[in-house]
Design a protein around this nucleic acid. Structure first.
Lengths: 294, 294
DNA sequence: CCCCACCTATCTCAATATCAGATAGCAACC
DNA sequence: GGTTGCTATCTGATATTGAGATAGGTGGGG
């Protein structure tokens, strides 16, 4: 006969309660039910679980070990059931979150930490990208929510909510020729190599922030920062990524005079219009919306 | 209704096979059985597991997550069953092995490594002691097998098999007064502090190896070795424990002239007369018996 | 030493769940 | 449009499980 959860439950209850009768009372069943359940389990497994010599049944050596196995099975069952319970109450089974790599980690870490305890049943998938990558993820249903920094406007193909602005600034290393000037016009930037962000999708930053033809296109802002440190070129980088290096004097904030400078880049929360989110997704949206530039 | 293993099995089989009919064929059941099992599971959990829109049922997002949970439950079930299968074939559920702390680790490690793969279902409990501690463990049924180094004869209360001899030697640190002598009589040992092994049970080494009254009784051979290194006293220690220190010159093998010196201490495998061991225990006995001084 | 309280195993009958087979409705492919 | 293979559902037969009752055993207390 096949292993049955009722048998295992009777076994565990009997081991815990110390007697079959007590276990039956606790389970709200008849004593005979527990007795036969355990007996059948013993037959199925071919192992005697209890020593019935005395008044109270005593776990055998094998029973002691198998008890832990049985408890493990039941524990996974309650895992499954509690997760299913969450799902049936409209909690998302999984949230796939697309994030621009520029988004400061402290934005995420705090929210995700609370998320993990508020929705322990929900799986999280964290996808990273640059520029329009995140929007593409949401459009193609590979992500449910996204945190995006569009250099131009976000497309209408996704719903968006403005969260805050991140300041940007032009930087070069201490030894870079540009770092020696006290005022810089766009024309003066021209002869120097600019490190420009590109994305997996192939776009690059808008022309309004590209000054000249000596550019390197790089898919990672982290790598751009490293190359700026090594004086390979200059770049426009989000302020929070270079804060420490500016304070330490390793990098210099270039005094560029620009009319339409992207000194502020908006951070948007985006999601697909059509797809309804469950509780976990709504919770995340609310939490992210609470971030207002602070 | 209660969660049932058959339901879970049908769910997993259907997800794997890609259709309920295929799952039914694989399980050797009727298609209706699988169909109703999955339907009941969905009712029980309050979650729809498959999207039945197309020809083939497709896992929903929730179904995908719950599938892993279900697989986990079934995996633990097979764990339990395979362990029970081993037990029903006379494999021990648990082996409690008492070991004298002097037994060289390489004696154990090799055997236990092979043991773990030969009997993955068997729990191992490793208990350490000195002198007669191990024998006490076996006598009082707290251990099934023991590796013991009796300073005198092993009692008849347990069954014993001689495995090999371990060489002992008297040692002191390089700076110790005894280390300066080129020949040492028992009388010359007298005024110096001897570090003597005692046990949890309270016995100590036999009088034949105690020379004088200035003794410290210590329960750990490891600690004795450390104290000898620090020149707190001299001691008789198993050769393998001081090999490196002798080679490096930190410790000196004292040239003591003894008639009845315990230059060799026997290592015994012991077990309770009455208790029958299963396959795992017999395997261990055989493996240990194969150790013949090598 | 015996009695009583409490335990377990087992029997029986009723209730319940499960299964195979048959049927009807659908989707995909030729 | 026919064919194939799929799913849901109904039905009667079967098997499992449940409670209740009974008999037999253990252990502590008067």
């Amino acid at each position: 006969m096949r292993l049955s959860l009722d048998h295992l439950e009777a076994f565990v209850a009997a081991a815990r309660a110390g007697s079959f009768s007590a276990a039956a009372r606790r389970l709200g069943k008849a004593q005979s039910a527990v007795s036969t359940a355990v007996a059948n389990l013993e037959i199925d497994l071919g192992v005697s679980l209890f020593d019935r010599g005395g008044k109270y049944p005593l776990l055998t050596e094998q029973g002691e070990v198998l008890l832990r196995d049985a408890q493990a099975v039941l524990a996974r069952c309650t895992d499954l059931q509690s997760r299913a319970g969450a799902f049936s109450e409209q909690v998302d089974a999984r949230i796939r979150l697309g994030v621009d790599e520029i988004v400061p980690q402290r934005f995420l870490v705090d929210v995700l930490e609370r998320f993990s305890s508020a929705f322990p049943q929900t799986e999280l998938e964290l996808l990273y990208g640059t520029l329009k990558d995140v929007q593409t993820l949401v459009e193609t249903e590979r992500a449910d929510l996204g945190l995006m920094l569009p250099m131009d406007f976000p497309d209408k193909s996704v719903a968006a909510r403005l969260l805050c602005y991140l300041p940007y600034c032009p930087v070069a290393s201490k030894g870079h020729p540009l770092a020696q000037l006290s005022e810089i016009s766009p024309a003066q930037l021209e002869p120097h190599r600019q490190l420009v962000l590109t994305s997996r999708g192939g776009e690059r930053e808008p022309d309004s922030v590209i000054f000249g033809s000596r550019t390197w296109m790089i898919e990672s802002t982290q790598v751009i920062r490293e190359l700026v440190r090594k004086s390979v070129g200059y770049a426009f980088l989000p302020r929070h990524m270079v804060e420490e290096d500016l304070a330490a004097g390793h990098l210099i904030h270039l005094p560029v005079t620009l009319e339409q400078a992207p000194h502020q880049v908006p951070v948007y929360l985006i999601w697909a219009h059509a797809r309804p989110l469950g509780r976990a997704g709504q919770w995340l949206m609310e939490e992210f919306s609470r971030i207002d530039g602070a």
